[in-house]
Structures are given as structure tokens and as C-alpha cells.
């Protein structure tokens, strides 16, 4: 009985160490557009913002360029790949690194279809009445 408990205890401790190590190496902090731009060079971060309308450039090789804004600062984002529901003017999170004045996105997360609140906030009843 005691032997089993020791084995399980050791296994759980080993697991804890592996978990902590993996957690640390795969952690990707959230930062703002202003922070990224002011730093000039940042590795492996996530930036939350809105895709600036009329800023999108579609380049060959499935490459997409657009500006991301946090309301104060904008930055240029470049992404290779297909985004199934890309639109301008919607909130997005870009994941990647910033260097040479451009954010190189490894991932672009757009508003997930099962998340609704953002849309309601952007288009509240008042706005609908106005226009």
C-alpha cells in the first residue's frame, strides 16, 4: 500500500514539473498594439485589436496584409494562409512576433461564431435605431 502511494506521489510530482515547464515555454502573453509598436521588437505575443477598414491588401501566395488598431496606435500585420471568415472592422487577435515594423502573425483568431457578445456591443440597439 505504502509503496503504491510513493509511486503515485512521485508520478504526480514528475507530472507537475513537466506541466510547469511546458506551461512556461508555451506561454504567450497578451499585449496591446501600442506596447508592441513602442517596443519595436517582440517575440511570441498575442495582440488584441480591430482590423482597420480599407487597410487589407491581398498579396499572392495566400498572403494577407492588414492594419490592426487598438484605438490609439495601428500596426501592419502580415499573415500567410486562409482565414475562413475574414472581414474588416471586426475584432481579431493576432499571435506571432513583431520585427522590422511588421507583425508576422503565426495565427489570426477572428471572432468565433459561438461568441456573441462582441457583436451585440458593437451594434447595440441604439446604433441600429440611428442607422
Amino acid at each position: 500500500m505504502k509503496k503504491v502511494s510513493i509511486i503515485v506521489g512521485v508520478a504526480v510530482i514528475v507530472f507537475g514539473i513537466v506541466l510547469a515547464t511546458s506551461f512556461k515555454s508555451e506561454l504567450c502573453p497578451y499585449v496591446t498594439v501600442s506596447y508592441v509598436v513602442s517596443k519595436g521588437r517582440v517575440n511570441n505575443v498575442q495582440v488584441n485589436g480591430t482590423i482597420v477598414p480599407r487597410s487589407t491588401k491581398i498579396l499572392p501566395n495566400n498572403t494577407l496584409m492588414f492594419n490592426l488598431s487598438d484605438g490609439r496606435t495601428q500596426m501592419r500585420v502580415i499573415y500567410h494562409g486562409i482565414l475562413s471568415h475574414y472581414q474588416e472592422g471586426i475584432p481579431a487577435v493576432v499571435v506571432g512576433s513583431y520585427y522590422g515594423g511588421i507583425f508576422h502573425a503565426r495565427e489570426v483568431l477572428l471572432k468565433c461564431p459561438s461568441k456573441y457578445k462582441v457583436m451585440e456591443e458593437n451594434y447595440s440597439t441604439k446604433k441600429v435605431v440611428k442607422g
Partner: peptide
């Protein structure tokens, strides 16, 4: 649970690789 709750607790989240590694 750790991976999912990270964004609620600190200003960061973990990548897919965190889950796959474990």
C-alpha cells in the same frame, strides 16, 4: 483546466503545443 483558465488569471494564454506536449 490550467490552459483554459490561464487567460482569466494572467494576461497571457498558452499555445496548442502546451496541450499536445502533455
Amino acid at each position: 483546466l490550467v490552459g483554459t483558465l490561464t487567460p482569466l488569471l494572467i494576461r497571457a494564454s498558452v499555445t496548442r503545443m502546451f496541450y499536445r506536449h502533455i
